[in-house]
Design a protein around this nucleic acid. Structure first.
Length: 125
RNA sequence: GCAGAUGGCCGGAUGGUCGCCGCCCGCGCAAGCGGGGGGAGGAAAGUCCGGGCUCCACGGAAACACGGUGCCGGUUAACGGCCGGCGGGGGCGACCCCAGGGAAAGUGCCACAGAAAGCAAACCGCCGAGGGCUUCGGCCCGGCAAGGAUGAAAGGGUGCGGUAAGAGCGCACCGCGCGCCUGGCAACAGGGGCGGCAUGGUAAACCCCACCGGGAGCAAGACCAAAUGGAUGAUUGUCCUUCAGUGGACAGGCGGGUUUUCGCGCCGUCAUCGUGGUAGGUCGCUUGAGCGCGGCUGGCAACAGCCCGCCUAGAGGAAUGGCCAUCCAGGCGGGGCAACCCGCCGGACAGAACCCGGCUUACAGGCCAUCUGCUUUU
RNA sequence: GCGGGCGUAGCUCAGGGGUAGAGCAUAACCUUGCCAAGGUUAGGGUCGUGAGUUCGAAUCUCAUCGCCCGCU
């Protein structure tokens, strides 16, 4: 699985505004056209979640789920960023995977772009 | 048995399955495939000290400033660490705690209260022996530092003598200071002598003294080195010239809506060289003041020396994981006199980022050794 | 990796060894026909936490926790 490692890439993914929230993580996505590329993924957990052990654990569980799910369910050419939340450390693993499939499907269908009318590219400033 | 003290150790185990990161071997042009083996800690943490290593600065260095340390001796590469001792404090005790140099070098501060808070004097008070006055009550000169509600602290303390009242004024003991002797490397301890008491506290207030410290940090630093940029030379034709592409002249393409002329602007190709060191890569990077509940020797010990054995993560924003089963600890509930049985919950603190020695802080639970007090039994 | 700063009332901040303060906010009363403003008063504090120095600590020292900010 190709990883996102550079900070500018993370910023680029975040700048698209495409995201889907689940209890254990927030999934951000940046669409891409190059079909030859497998979906790439980056993982990040903020310091507010806990100390290094807790953050590592959250990141590893999400990474393991992504390893099993992303190649089949992710869009080729896209770049994804998973932001770990507090619940990721003890959230049931099957539910974590189900949430991930759900979030990937929603983002692929563009569902995040038109719910409840708040999807317009936000006004600046 | 109960309650403690000190030192040390461990801090889940086994297996299945799907994965991750280095290393070695084989195959392969390569991508990769197969096999083997390794993969977090006692604190990896905080970054509070000390070093190694690297670069910078500097003639060797010293001093000032600044910062740190602060009883004595030892140990160590070094330390603010550790060990042993001394002194002080706490505890019945095992044992624990102490920034523990200097206040007769100087400066500052000591609120409130109190007569007075640092100059030992004033004030209240006490005295009536001496001198003077007297209205015979006393007053003044004078003597004294015992007492004076306070305060953290009041100019040695207690007792006896002494006196007009008193006072180290005298004596005894305690304290203090200064010599001497003995023991000890020393801190210091013990003994005896002299002094008649002078020197309040505060240095985690300024300060003084002694000792230590040049600065930065592996993103240190070293090497290789694109792209772009620089220099030199060559490179196309014609003519003149020269010993010689030696020197010189002219000529090319593109750009105006088009044409001519003149002028202007822009543009070559190739090779070599060296500077700089960017992107990127390699090294530094783990064999080291290494580890061993191995042994011997010296030492009370910290530790040192010799011998034997072992190799134990080295990555790039960074791997060491996910799921499951059984067992082992642990907790709760129920049944049972008990052994035990059943069910549920459930695994401390915490993740290497150049390396090492310490300190500090966090930590479920458990194990071992030595010691102390109390109680009981023999 | 290296370094700096800040934690005091509900909020924003003073106070740097000697009784914890100001403004805003809160409550009561006065004023007004009622409200606002104004006036008078009151309540409200483990001074982040734990040790130590000192007679005495918010203040000085050490440790620790949390937050913020630089440099590379």
């Amino acid at each position: 699985m190709q990883r996102v490692t550079q900070r500018p890439e993370y910023l680029a993914v975040a700048a698209t505004g495409r995201k889907w929230v689940t209890p254990a993580f927030i999934l951000q996505a940046m669409p891409g056209d190059d079909i030859s590329l497998a979906p790439r993924a980056g993982f990040t957990v903020s310091k507010k979640v806990g100390n290094a052990v807790v953050r590592n654990r959250a990141r590893r569980r999400i990474k393991e789920a992504a390893r099993m799910i992303l190649p089949a369910n992710g869009q080729r050419g896209w770049a994804y960023v998973f932001i770990g939340r507090q619940a990721a450390t003890d959230y049931p693993f099957e539910k974590l995977g189900a949430d991930m499939r759900w979030a990937l499907a929603k983002l692929a269908s563009g569902a995040d772009l038109s719910p409840r009318g708040n999807s317009k590219p936000h006004r600046k400033s």
